[in-house]
Write a protein that binds this DNA or RNA. Structure first.
Lengths: 251, 251
DNA sequence: CTCGCAGTTTAACCTATGTTGGCCTTTGAA
DNA sequence: TTCAAAGGCCAACATAGGTTAAACTGCGAG
């Protein structure tokens, strides 16, 4: 299987075989990590760049009262801390949600790569900007969609994102979060998430047992969520090429 | 007065006098724009880069049911669409909230600048990453803070952000949003925002009449909000220098 | 000066979601 | 095979915040 990082970045730029090879070699030294392990903590200035290759990780913050808000899911192909580190000090933490395989890239090797490979540099910034777009959509979702539409929206999104890296065949995917994790992502209580999930099941929209999520009625779920995938910017490298032509000085 | 763009970017990189001059000349052709005017709409691929010099603008999305969610406030010194356009097509809209002065930068001039001026390029990416950090904090705030803490948090943030560009002397600032705008930003109803505001006034934390917001009790408001300004990354260019040294290949 | 509009304030009522606490099921370790 | 822990489920109850609608205020246009 082509590795998910390459698959994802191909949506952001037209990569040559050589560039794909460079990416492959970069993530060669991946490690398995248990679930619920912090990879980076708020206040750190991390030495490595992390890429998720298997499993789920997340960005989160903890509030004074102990509450946790998950701000992003990091799925295979996603960087955890690619450019954030430009800010000096992390303003949030990153941890695995499930047992995962994580690549630890030495930052200096990545730097050399981006200096010499503008297309790769472009792809990496594209990935960061997509992260931001997802964040914006989550904000909209939390602010203006009722709980059932919100959860439906998150399922729609994860289906597309996992599908984009070849991990959602037949609308079925490994979705290993607990309902509590989902609640911390949605800004809801675990009890209410449970109510909503059961409603979605009763309506024949999804099935979710163990770690397997299956979207039974894609159109129905997307209609409920008001889902428009444009913000994921998966139109493909052709679209990105157009943008690149329009923007000469992106590196 | 030094223009707000330069003031802001100096937090992101140590700019030479020449670089500051370049920025100044870049925004020379600013225009006045009425309130509630779209600068860019979802679906556009904008030709200019916009910078707010005076007034307030915002990023927002509109939902099928007509609801509006504001995802960011754009205050003097902020770019509206600096790097987003790398994604090809806007996934959200940008409009003024009040009569504003907006600089329209020709993208190619900006491109030339960033190609030849790594420090400037760094400062611009820094600004984009700070935008993302603010977005993350808004998400936390919406998900896990009750309404009064949330509104308090927004006031704390705007006080620091306006202060950073010299527009909040003595904890007093021009804050020209309506309560409805605030509600659309917070994901609350206008009625409830009104309730909360009055509570904050009664508690002696703020005064807000006309367009003038005054934070009467900074410590009290920040304690209520659980405000920690680290996510604004205004530690200054010294901090950014450190990050820059650690990250050779950021341009 | 006054008219009209946009924004604010109030009140009454409603509902989505939170909380608590208990029980049930699954899983994996011993 | 059993047990403990984690996660899922459920019901009763509490409340933060939404909705509607009406009055009030201040301000800008004419």
């Amino acid at each position: 299987m082509v590795n998910p990082l390459v698959r994802k970045l191909e949506y952001g730029a037209r990569l040559s075989d050589e560039e794909k090879g460079l990416l492959e070699s970069l993530i060669a030294g991946a490690e398995d990590v248990d679930g619920h392990q912090d990879l980076i903590s708020e206040g750190d200035a991390p030495a490595h760049v992390h890429v998720v290759l298997k499993g789920f990780a997340c960005r989160y913050k903890t509030l004074p009262d102990g509450g946790r808000q998950i701000m992003a899911w990091l799925v295979p192909g996603d960087f955890c801390d690619l450019h954030v580190s430009l800010l000096g000090e992390m303003d949030h933490s990153i941890s695995t949600l499930t047992p995962s395989t994580i690549a630890f890239l030495p930052r200096d090797r990545l730097d050399v790569l981006t200096e010499n490979r503008p297309t790769l540099a472009h792809a990496l910034w594209w990935a960061t900007l997509v992260d931001e777009a997802v964040l914006r959509e989550w904000l909209v979702t939390m602010g203006r969609r009722p709980a059932h539409r919100q959860i439906a929206h998150m399922f729609c999104e994860v289906r597309v994102r996992l599908g984009a890296v070849g991990m959602a065949d037949d609308d079925t995917m490994d979705f290993p979060l607990s309902q509590t994790d989902l609640a911390d992502s949605a800004g809801l209580s675990a009890v209410h998430v449970n109510r909503v999930i059961q409603q979605l099941r009763d309506d024949g929209l999804i099935s979710w047992r163990g770690h397997v999520l299956k979207v039974l009625d894609v159109a129905g779920l997307e209609a409920l969520a008001g889902f428009n995938p444009n913000y994921l910017h998966l139109g493909g490298a052709a679209v990105a090429e157009g943008a690149r032509a329009a923007v000469a000085g992106w590196r």
